[in-house]
């Protein structure tokens, strides 16, 4: 039984389909990423998956329970890390976990027994009695993650778990998420960080305008949709050289003052650039970001 199965879900707001005929099936014990620009429908998809809102069309099952009617029962075995901070500011770290445990029907004793391991997991071992406003942003996010695990969920749903965190804090969250995957939990996360998706996810759905436009493992997405090498060219005289670049590469894209050359033969490009001598360039392997930009375009959303 897939932990989550969505079939042909559509959700419209005022005539606009924010989620448009979307289907998704999670594999137990794997991490699935929903990758998309702002406003692509990622959060709406999660809210549909949790049974918080009703779809206009389509159907879904969360841990075998029909959505949205039986979603409340299903959520007994689901952990959620929302995008916005929703910790109780008047409570200490421990009290936050106790109160949240009660929503799952955990007695104080049961919750107390789980708290040390959760605090350890979240790197908050010494902070049990700290009040929430005294925690850093990274600590709050880790506490939110610990809170989502109080019911020992089978499926953990995370909405942009590292947005707004500094690099150290992001790495700590990633470590935690990897350990959850090792423990056999299924993860569904949204992100617009390509490196995050590439690092954590076994499978990625690229979502744009409410539709899944590509779905595969990160490696396969890169192999299928993009040339293996990218040469980013910028500097004085780019306009004159651009024609040469376009002849040498399979695909070129200009964004502002930079020319992105996608190619299987990067030496041909870098040799030509070295001969030209004036332009600066950066040669790197193609990554998920390139796939993402190719598929969703370079225009700003919102």
């Amino acid at each position: 039984m897939p932990p989550l199965m969505l079939k042909g879900l559509t959700k419209r707001y005022g005539g606009t389909a924010v989620v448009d005929d979307l289907s998704l099936e999670l594999v137990p014990g794997r991490c699935h990423g929903l990758l998309g620009p702002n406003g692509a429908g990622k959060t709406t998809t999660l809210r549909l998956a949790l049974g918080l809102i009703e779809a206009d069309a389509g159907e879904g099952r969360l841990l075998g329970h029909r959505l949205p009617r039986e979603a409340a029962q299903a959520r007994q075995r689901v952990g959620v890390v929302p995008q916005a901070d929703s910790l109780d500011p008047d409570f200490s770290v421990r009290e936050n976990l106790l109160a949240y445990g009660r929503y799952f029907g955990l007695s104080r004793r049961e919750a107390e027994a789980r708290i040390p391991a959760l605090l350890d997991f979240a790197g908050l071992a010494g902070k049990a009695d700290a009040r929430v406003p005294t925690l850093s942003g990274g600590m709050k996010r880790r506490l939110t993650l610990a809170r989502a695990l109080i019911n020992d969920p089978e499926l953990v749903v995370l909405d942009e778990p590292t947005t707004g965190l500094d690099p150290q804090a992001r790495h700590l969250v990633w470590q935690g998420l990897r350990r959850l995957i090792q423990q056999g939990k299924t993860l569904l996360l949204t992100t617009h960080f390509m490196d995050e998706a590439e690092r954590l996810c076994d499978r990625i759905s690229i979502i744009d305008r409410g539709r899944i436009i590509a779905e595969d493992s990160p490696r396969a997405l890169i192999a299928r949709h993009i040339e293996p090498h990218v040469v980013e060219v910028f500097g004085e005289g780019l306009a004159d050289w651009a024609g040469c670049g376009r002849r040498l590469c399979r695909r070129c894209e200009q964004a502002g003052e930079t020319l992105f050359c996608y190619t299987e033969d990067p030496e041909a490009v870098t040799d030509a650039l070295d001969r030209q001598g004036q332009l600066r360039y950066l040669h790197r392997p193609a990554n998920l970001e390139d796939v993402f930009l190719k598929l969703t375009g370079r225009d700003l959303r919102e």
Partner: peptide, 14 residues
């Protein structure tokens, strides 16, 4: 402001 209700709605409570 505190989004307490949102947090609770993610649990089995409705």
């Amino acid at each position: 402001v505190q989004k307490t209700w949102d947090a609770i709605l993610n649990t089995p409570l409705t």
